[in-house]
């Protein structure tokens, strides 16, 4: 093969198995890789020029989400049965009648100082939430106590190696109970140029909760906040589902140049949730019935998502 002459990739492919010199083989492999990339680039440019001529729109990029395996439980906007169910489910009163949530935030037994601080920061975002020391109480006792005092939700944080690891959300009085894995947590002081919470009811942005299970989880998370946002506070809580990970962010927006420009300031804390289980009643490890339970063997196909 002569140097500086464009080699045929098919030719390289055909002679590769016959070459026994290792160095030469590696050189040819690299050459083949380079040529293939070059071909791809040329093809891309050719297609781009053709599109410009014909005025066609560019193709949408292929991502795992866009190639998602279709789910039976994907909810469309014209599904009356689901709409009717949502009018009578456990969270209906929060959306229809504007019932204010009343929340207990607590931790596991013997929490670290870091976990307590984190739980208190989360409590700071939620209006009407109170932090309670866990002491030695059982979850069942806490639920009973909270039910009797008309609390609507109990949030319990777990930790591993002094980092938040799990979150139980127990909706009272009838459930459901959700267990999330918590990861990628940023406390407020770790976020650069962070703001401070103002205590106004935040606006909520819920995104990509598309399946039946996803909608239920979305409604459960949204019901932790009052459904009457106080726009004066310019607070936004965002919960975005992406590949079954729920990204939780808390921002303030500021208007600049007489409202022509808007900038965001993150208030924090920042966390990522992944659904582990959803039980139909209140917390019961013995005989609780699961609506969903994450099992590692469920994640065989990377393009299959549940929320």
């Amino acid at each position: 093969m002569v140097k500086n002459q464009a080699p045929n990739t098919n030719f390289i492919k055909s002679i590769l198995p016959t070459i026994k010199n290792k160095t030469r083989k590696v050189q040819l492999m690299l050459r083949l890789k380079y040529e293939l990339k070059k071909q791809q680039k040329e093809g891309r440019e050719k297609r781009k020029k053709q599109r410009e001529k014909t005025g066609e729109a560019p193709l949408a990029p292929k991502t795992i989400e866009s190639m998602r395996v279709p789910e039976d439980s994907f909810v469309t906007s014209d599904n009356e049965e689901v709409k009717n169910d949502e009018n009578i489910d456990e969270f209906a009163s929060y959306y229809k009648e504007g019932v204010l949530p009343k929340i207990i935030v607590t931790t596991k037994r013997r929490p670290s100082e870091q976990l307590i601080k984190f739980a208190k920061e989360v409590q700071g975002i939620m209006p009407n939430a109170e932090y309670y020391d866990r002491r030695t109480y059982d979850m069942k006792e806490i639920c009973e106590y909270a039910s009797n005092r008309e609390y609507t939700d109990v949030l319990v944080f777990n930790e591993k190696n002094k980092e938040p690891e799990g979150l139980w959300i127990i909706h009272l009085p009838e459930g459901p109970t959700a267990h999330f894995r918590v990861s990628n947590t940023w406390k407020r002081r770790e976020i650069p140029n962070h703001g401070t919470p103002t205590g106004y009811y935040p606006e909520l942005i819920m995104k990509n909760f598309d399946t039946r299970l996803g909608q239920r989880i979305g409604r459960m998370l949204a019901s932790l906040f009052p459904q009457k946002p106080e726009f004066r506070g310019r607070n936004v809580v965002t919960m975005k589902n992406q590949r079954d990970f729920i990204f939780f962010r808390h921002h303030r927006y500021l208007f600049k140049e007489d409202g022509k420009k808007v900038i965001l300031q993150e208030v924090g804390p920042r966390l990522t949730l992944k659904l582990r289980s959803l039980q139909s009643g209140i917390f019961n490890t013995e005989s609780g019935e699961y609506e969903f339970l994450y099992q590692p063997n469920m994640q065989v196909n990377r393009k299959k998502f549940f929320l």
Binding site: D72, S73, R212, S280, E289, Y290, E291, F292, L293, Y294, Q295, N297, M298
Partner: peptide, 25 residues
């Protein structure tokens, strides 16, 4: 199967086993 919702009812009929539960299937 990798079913994940609690089973609420089972019935056998003519060599077929029908079941339903909290996963809505």
């Amino acid at each position: 199967g990798r079913s994940v919702g609690s089973i609420r009812s089972i019935e056998e009929n003519d060599g077929m086993l029908y079941s339903c539960g909290l996963d809505r299937y």
